[in-house]
Amino acid sequence: MSTLRINDLAVLDIQPASFTLQAGECVGLSGPSGEGKSLLLRAMADLIPHSGKIHLDGEDCDHINPAQWRRRVGLLLPESHWWSDRVGDHFSRPDRDMVGVLGFNEAVFGWQISRCSSGEKQRLALLRLLANQPQVLLLDEPTASLDPDNVGRVEALIEKYRHEHKAPVLWVSHDPAQLGRVASRQLRLEDKQLQEPVTCR
């Protein structure tokens, strides 16, 4: 059970934004490319300088060790990057059950990164993030290079994780249909301002 409260968060030229991600809720974030959705997520993970306050369960981001904050507020970047040769070297804790949900078996931990397709890498990046068991998920286009079958698997896995951990999820996507499926409400970043236009579901 975790709640992420954002107060007057501002990055570069984005207007200060305030919103709260309640425990176990999935919030969609959409908007034109280049508006700063990714910047907002990176600021929430404290990867870039920002103004405003972020509280996780009442704890101020500025008072928590940054590495620990980023383990708790897990950010999935839109492009996956890898630093070792083997897939397994990137996992803090190999979880056999979870890889199964995304259509891998445990042999995947021995695979060479250089042989993985971009879709495989995107799914593995999500698994790598979930292996840290973050309390909050910030997902930046988690299904951008996946085929429809795998989009379904990823959506199901995140749904499962959200329920089991009561984790709030912020989901960036350019696909309104997907956000309609997964999110209970939506935010929109347009003209450098964050708005809450419609409630779906």
């Binding site: 990867l47 590495a67 897990g74 950010l75 990057h81 803090s92």
Partner: peptide, 14 residues
């Protein structure tokens, strides 16, 4: 830098 930021985002110390 993308690799470094990925590692940071996964909770690694600098």
């Amino acid at each position: 830098r993308a690799v470094i930021e990925t590692r940071l985002s996964l909770g690694q110390e600098w």
